[in-house]
Design a protein around this nucleic acid. Structure first.
Lengths: 113, 113
DNA sequence: TCCATATTTCCAATATTATGGAAATATGAT
DNA sequence: ATCATATTTCCATAATATTGGAAATATGGA
């Protein structure tokens, strides 16, 4: 991961509403959550929520899939893994015995429903 | 760590100049680096650099210590550890066998000089 | 005291981000 | 076709962040 991608991901997560959305999606699992349900959970106007979801999507941290009229948003676990890897390698010097090539972070799995 | 502190830390790191400064400080080690040397490394005007350093300091990610006329900035490893812990617990559901109480991330150590 | 060095603070200009209502789009049902 | 539902896009407004020059502050030395 290069720095610009890391900055995008960090920017996406650096806003309270978006971080809350992302946390919610992470614990919601792979099947995802309808946009409306996210808005209800957060108490946000849908246009505002939509703006934040598109920021997260743009940064690659969430995906969405349509099913009828509803769009299911879900956390993109692999992207979060990449970010964790970037931070571990670049911002946590000393971790993993300081051998750069071995500082591969543990993989993230979706929660069981 | 609560969400507002996490948002502060993420905001501090979500800007390319600041992320670059922080990476530089992380690998520079505990003794820190004079502000001027950071500015030289980045090619930034000192007033701009000073602004970014204060953002990082405000977020708790860097410390500084004066020695004569020069201020040595250094990464605050423990704060970065806390952020990694927050992200691991809140944004990486499934890690560490999904047992919330056990998802304590490995500790970061400063690099040897 | 006066000067040089290191760095910050002040300030104004510019740029980017966040918000939410209203209109638009997409889909499915009757 | 018409209507209802789910969600986005558009737009204007407000808020916040970034930039860099100039002046201010802090420290040490002659």
């Amino acid at each position: 991961m290069e720095i610009n991608k890391a900055v995008s991901a960090l920017s996406a997560l650096s806003q309270e509403n978006r971080l809350t959305v992302f946390r919610y999606l992470v614990q919601a699992g792979l099947e995802g959550v309808p946009a409306g349900q996210i808005g209800e959970h957060l108490g946000l106007p849908l246009s505002t929520l939509s703006f934040h979801l598109s920021q997260l999507k743009h940064a690659g941290l969430v995906k969405c899939r349509r099913e009828g009229r509803t769009l299911f948003y879900s956390a993109h676990y692999a992207a979060m893994n990449e970010l964790m890897g970037y931070l571990t390698e670049n911002c946590c010097q000393g971790i993993s015995g300081n051998r750069k090539t071995s500082s591969r972070p543990r993989k993230v799995r979706a929660s069981k429903k």
